[in-house]
Design a binder for these strands. Structure first.
Lengths: 204, 204
DNA sequence: CACTCTATTGACGATTGTTCAATAACGCCA
DNA sequence: TGGCGTTATTGAACAATCGTCAATAGAGTG
């Protein structure tokens, strides 16, 4: 935990890439616990050891900064949960879910920033979030496997979306309070849920 | 839509109950589309035809007002989706889901205010939301029926929570874009999902 | 019609988002 | 080594919004 905690020392000059990365990392960290309107630019600047003005130099305003933070969290999630190696559809599904669960556990703050950002009303943020979830969902079904595992109907698309929401809720709840549910059991529940839900889809 | 739209006319004096109800209704309406930090007290006051100060007289600050709005939306949801009459567990389940779906359709704004409020970071708001969802979930299983339909284990509680999240996502998505999915099909999917998910719970 | 109670107001101070001209750190070249 | 230009960075000033409080006025009561 490197906390410069504001010393009125000499200004430190970084490259734009470094500075931007630092601010985004800090934003992810801070926005995991506070909501965006509870995070003042003052606090952010002090925590980063910079002036308020610099933040506006890199990101035009607070909204844009928040958007960049959420986008970074989404990209990080997509990148770190790399697509599983080819194999049986159910195997691939389980591997994807496993990497997703492990990511949320290891990177709780970043994931919270993403989820909370998505729900904070802004349309742009919701799009970023939806896109990330789409990427994750699409990975579960390879182009060839999709036709067989999940039919491409309106009902099916709805169910897959619902399954994604359920998965997110399960993982977040389990991460915070696992109770006596093991990681394996969680994976089993999520993985087995998808076929079970697909079987419920009415004929259309 | 009655929009007084600010006339500098004589002040209208209402009873505290009426005024409070008016402000909460207006809050539910306004917070359905904007997020809480995008809603200025100025706009709210002008829209209500009152001064800013009056809002602070009734609710101490903006957070408390938001909390009251969300709580009202939650109470409204719980009240209007009255518990279904006794009968078969699956029948009761379907009736509960139906009333829930119909409420969301008929009262989209209020429901959005509730959901968006819950996700906006504040811990109190999330508690209100969780409590409302618990009430709805509990209704699905009468005390006597619970033991038989859903076992009371950590895994089962997790699954029911996930099912709730899925239901919420399904109903919201369907309300906005029904596609060619009928109301009956949606009810069928949600209702049949719970037993299907329960069957997936690993032995613990 | 005066009088009391209290719902309501409007002006003021405090906090926070945003802008912009001035400043200083770093690389470069003589 | 020392001056110089580029530009990352600052801090003060401005704007908008949150929150406070003593003063005001509507409505019932005798």
């Amino acid at each position: 935990m490197t906390t410069p905690t504001s010393s009125t020392g000499p200004r430190t000059r970084l490259s734009p890439e470094e500075r931007r990365a630092q601010l985004l990392d800090l934003g992810v960290q801070l926005l995991a616990t506070r909501s965006v309107d509870e995070l003042s630019i003052d606090l952010l600047a002090e925590e980063a050891g910079i002036s308020r003005g610099l933040l506006y130099h890199y990101f035009g305003n607070k909204h844009a900064f928040h958007e960049a933070v959420v986008r970074r969290a989404a990209d990080d999630l997509i990148e770190q949960t790399a697509p599983p190696p080819g194999g049986e559809p159910l195997q691939r599904l389980r591997a994807s879910v496993a990497s997703y669960v492990d990511y949320v556990v290891a990177n709780h703050q970043g994931y919270l920033s993403l989820v909370k950002g998505a729900a904070s009303g802004n349309e742009t943020l919701r799009e970023i979030y939806d896109e990330a979830r789409s990427v994750l969902s699409e990975r579960m079904f390879l182009p060839d496997a999709r036709g067989s595992m999940v039919p491409d109907t309106a009902s099916a698309r709805l169910v897959v979306r619902g399954w994604s929401a359920m998965t997110e809720e399960l993982v977040l709840t389990w991460t915070v309070a696992p109770g006596d549910v093991t990681r394996e059991q969680l994976l089993e529940i999520i993985t087995a849920s998808l076929p079970a839900l697909v079987a419920v889809i009415p004929a259309g």
